[in-house]
Amino acid sequence: MKGAWRWRRTAVVALVTAVVMLPFWWLLSLAFKPETEVFSYPPNLLPREWTLDNFAYVWETTNLPVALTNSVVVGVLTVLSNVMAATAAGYAFARLKFAGSRPLFAATLGAAMVPAVVQLIPLFLVTQRWPLAGGNDLFGEGGSGLLNSYAGLLLPLLVQPLNIFLARQFFLDLPEEMAEAARLDGASELRIFWSVYLPIARPVVATIGVLSFTGAWEDFLWPLVVVSSPDMQTLPLALSTYAASGVVQYGPLMAATVIATIPVVGVFLAAQRHFVRGLASGGVKG
């Protein structure tokens, strides 16, 4: 009886895994098939002939290299700014007493609840009318502001309120004695944060890094409204442009999708250990 149950469980688990993995199987299969085989019917589960032609094709004939560069630049800058600003703010909310700390933290949590679509239109106008940028005068008239620029793409990604919350929860759990010892030695609050607490905050820094990076990497709606030039497209925008261009060439499209996917999967696998622990420690006090 028990043996039968185990066997059935293994069968169900294997079946579910196969079904869940099937779309990825097709992604890889299409990406490595020659163009003639992509439209062959019935579709082959495995390419009869493996080729890198699709990768070479998208790389050489589309803006994929530019889009990849843009995504990496935006992703890296988002990580840097979130790690710096969110850990500092989270630390201050957790360990320093200052006037307005409570209402400010409540406002930060409130900001986390605002759907992106509410910010979309006004933030677009703010970006367009950014003073002294993109040909704008001091009052934001005359030019295109921060549209089609890294700064414009980065604007809503710079600090994500959730990251401040995660950092605060992490720093709340650390012992106060470490700060007191450093204070007795005459260290400033900034120095205590920088040299005492930040070095042991690796799990939460990793979590914030991964969440910020994947958030920036996936962002679609904001780049869609703020970017119109192919030179400033990020990967999701570039992919959607290829998919929308008349007759879709699935081979090259899937090759581009593979290229766009490898970095997030890589980041996730590399940081998984830290990531899971960081999230767990953030969840202790809710």
């Binding site: 600003a85 703010a89 400010l104 406002a107 509410v118 604007l155 944060f193």
Partner: peptide, 21 residues
């Protein structure tokens, strides 16, 4: 230390919400 994050959130969240309303 909360200042950088606060300023950014003010510009990209608070102002847009007010302006959007």
């Amino acid at each position: 230390m909360v200042l950088p994050a606060t300023i950014i959130l003010f510009v990209v969240v608070a102002i847009p919400i007010g302006y959007g309303f």
